[in-house]
Design a protein around this nucleic acid. Sequence first.
DNA 1: AGCCTCGGCTTACAATGTAAGCACGAGTAC
DNA 2: GTACTCGTGCTTACATTGTAAGCCGAGGCT
Lengths: 236, 236
Amino acid sequence: MAEHGERTEHTPTRRLSRQLIVDAALAHIDDSGAQALSMRSLAQELGVEAMSLYRYVEGKDDLLEAVVDRLLGDMRSRLDEELTEHWQGFLQALAHEVRRLAVEHPRAFPLVATRPPAAPWLRPPLRSIELVDTFLQTLLDFGFTEEQAVRAYRSFSSYLLGQLLLEAAVRGAEISPAEPLDDEGDGAPAGDAAESLADAPAVRRLQPLLSEDRSDQEFEASLEAVLDRLARELSQ
Amino acid sequence: MAEHGERTEHTPTRRLSRQLIVDAALAHIDDSGAQALSMRSLAQELGVEAMSLYRYVEGKDDLLEAVVDRLLGDMRSRLDEELTEHWQGFLQALAHEVRRLAVEHPRAFPLVATRPPAAPWLRPPLRSIELVDTFLQTLLDFGFTEEQAVRAYRSFSSYLLGQLLLEAAVRGAEISPAEPLDDEGDGAPAGDAAESLADAPAVRRLQPLLSEDRSDQEFEASLEAVLDRLARELSQ
DNA sequence: AGCCTCGGCTTACAATGTAAGCACGAGTAC
DNA sequence: GTACTCGTGCTTACATTGTAAGCCGAGGCT
């Protein structure tokens, strides 16, 4: 052995476990991005060698899958607590739960959104079978026909996906690269893509508007639009 | 005339060029997925050594960026030809152009959709500055206020992103893994996630409905909904 | 000629995922 | 007690990746 006994980690838990690994992976992703997650770095963070993780995890894919399952897992339990008397309330609660997830874990959310789902009809970000089952069953209980419930599932999924993936991307990017600093002294505006901004007068003029963060209003407004549309389909 | 590119790697230009590399990369992604693209495999496909690519490409990131630029590039030129007399026509043309892209390149589209954009206000899948400029300028020309144009840009982006990312994922998954075959003899239904399907009666019952492919109708219906919403915002 | 530049090649290295098998400590049976 | 097993983490090893550094030959200039 080359080196001995230097415990950088306080070994918070002597014993390894799948739970522990998945939690550490999520934490790592949260503050370094999914790209930066390697089996070795994760293992080091747990005070352990890389290969030890393979006792609890099939491989990296399995680990990432476990991370997204973990995120969606405690979300469904939270959903059960919120009881409403109309389907709009249910969908609103669901939307806000998923959004909370995206906002709290902007670096991890792309995984939830873009990992190939287990079945082709499992559409991100509602990726777990139980969650989809709850979704469909709830709408059926509220009087949706089967076709209507499935259509609602599709509309709702793509609404959530588009809205939240974009929002997570923005929030994730705000944290990531620590802005290498721009020492450009010329008149080019800040940001990054100053290249062909000269040929894009509309963009340049509207840049302040474009840069505003209206995520909240946008999310609520779109949600309302989706719900309205569903309601219209229901009565028609 | 969309494709029908006759690319025989051996015969044509012995000379390398960025164009050639990017095209080959796109082709490779189209039929093997972005995951399977490595500098070495791409170089081999071009009859060349891996390091030779670096004369024309900064690195893998640059290459991928070039691929998405190439996809969006000829799209804007196509857009210029389609002239309409109302903004709905423009947005419909744009939507269908982007969708064609997603359908023709389902494995490449996730790149367009999820790569971190050059500027935070550049929302996928409308990632190029010129394209966004065209978008905004066109709406302004049609009488949108600046706020309305920007709001439309946001709604439209997230609509396209959600809808097309899901559609591309489905179409991409249909081709990918060549279905390893399941020799499970028990009564569990096919697909893959037969695990907890027993606890999901609604999903099981609706599985045929869920598995139907209604991408076309879904896309058109959602598009109409978005346009209606924009029209309502306009007049209000 | 000599020389220079350019385009592709060779070599090399560090980081990654992971297969195979080792080491050691705690039960448990005798 | 000893021996045997087994779970758990470690060591080693290898193939694959992106890419930095430098080589080398061919064609065009002066």
